[in-house]
């Protein structure tokens, strides 16, 4: 059984010309098909009227007050904690201890990275960043599982997006902007050990560029570059490379053995040992995940 279309739309369908309908249909996508028996019964009683449920109504009445009081108590506790903090920006504060001194004083010589933050997250604390990449990968997998089974092969794109795709303003803007965005993303990834930037920031910019392209031109042209297979293989290969490289560098570098990755001249593009390849791997993971999230939310598959 199919759920009735909204009365407004059917009313208009009866009285208006068929030709004037494209816009209305486009703004109001097909009503979802009910999946449970419950939906059919819920139509008899519109959900808003059912809010007369006594339990919920009573709860609704006291809930805002309880929430406000809870928030006020929380803010008071946090502010009294702030009062006990050492002065903001002072050099003697406890976070600025020998760890920070060591990172800044020896970081350039030990990691070869001009950007100390890159040196910290991709060399000294690279296992942390490895775990972070795995969190991203796990989240992408979970979203894939949730949305794949949900859509049930909903291949037809929503109508709203179809309007946007043909929009000449969006298309022409994207034609100019997308190459610049992608180039900037690559620059930020490759520049991670030389200045502000790195795999996470650059990967997010790359992913944003890919999403903008897809919004303007649709998924079909993008399929040639990033299909489901490319997505899966790209992410897995980047993660495997990261894990392998980090095992290698911790085994060789941490024991002061010779590694084949030299630190090179600080400031040169091919320097800082493993940081540049790791930045590229992380950038690949982040860009593919961002694009994958968008694709899964938009059409239920990659």
């Amino acid at each position: 059984m199919k759920k009735q279309t909204k009365p407004k739309l059917s009313e208009r369908l009866r009285t208006w010309d068929a030709g004037s309908f494209d816009l209305t249909e486009a703004i109001d996508p097909d009503p979802p098909v009910p999946v449970t028996e419950y939906d059919l019964r819920a139509e008899d009683l519109p959900p808003l009227a059912r809010l007369g449920d006594r339990q919920v109504r009573g709860f609704r009445r006291i809930y805002p007050w309880l929430a406000a009081i809870l928030a006020a108590v929380l803010v008071t506790i946090l502010l009294s904690a702030v009062l006990d903090l050492p002065p903001y920006g002072a050099a003697e504060n406890p976070p600025h201890n020998e760890v920070m001194e060591r990172y800044v004083a020896r970081g350039l010589a030990e990691t070869g990275a001009v950007n100390t933050v890159s040196g910290v997250i991709l060399d000294y604390r690279a296992f942390d960043t490895l775990g972070e990449s795995h969190v991203l990968y796990t989240a992408a997998t979970a979203v894939l599982v949730l949305l794949l089974s949900a859509s049930g092969g909903r291949d037809e794109p929503p109508s709203v997006r179809r309007i946007m795709e043909g929009d000449p303003i969006l298309r022409n803007t994207a034609r100019v902007v997308v190459p610049i965005v992608l180039l900037f993303g690559v620059y930020v990834i490759l520049n991670g050990h030389l200045g502000p930037g790195g795999g996470f920031a650059g990967g997010a910019i790359l992913g944003g560029g890919l999403i903008l392209y897809v919004i303007a031109f649709g998924f079909e042209p993008m399929e040639k570059l990033i299909s489901g297979r490319v997505y899966r293989r790209g992410i897995t290969a980047a993660l495997c490379f990261y894990s392998g490289a980090k095992c290698y560098s911790f085994f060789c570098g941490a024991n002061h053995l010779e590694t084949i990755f030299q630190n090179g001249t600080p400031g040169a593009i091919l320097s800082a040992g493993l940081i540049l390849p790791l930045n590229i791997a992380v950038g690949l993971i982040v860009a593919l995940t961002m694009y994958g999230f968008y694709s899964m939310f938009q059409r239920g598959r990659i």
Binding site: A91, H96, Y103, L108, V117, P196, P266
Partner: peptide, 19 residues
């Protein structure tokens, strides 16, 4: 910011990179 472009590795010149 802790980006060492001029070769000065004195910790008292930069903010904390760890946070």
């Amino acid at each position: 910011p802790p980006i060492i472009t001029d070769g000065n590795t004195d910790p008292s010149a930069y903010v904390n990179p760890l946070p």
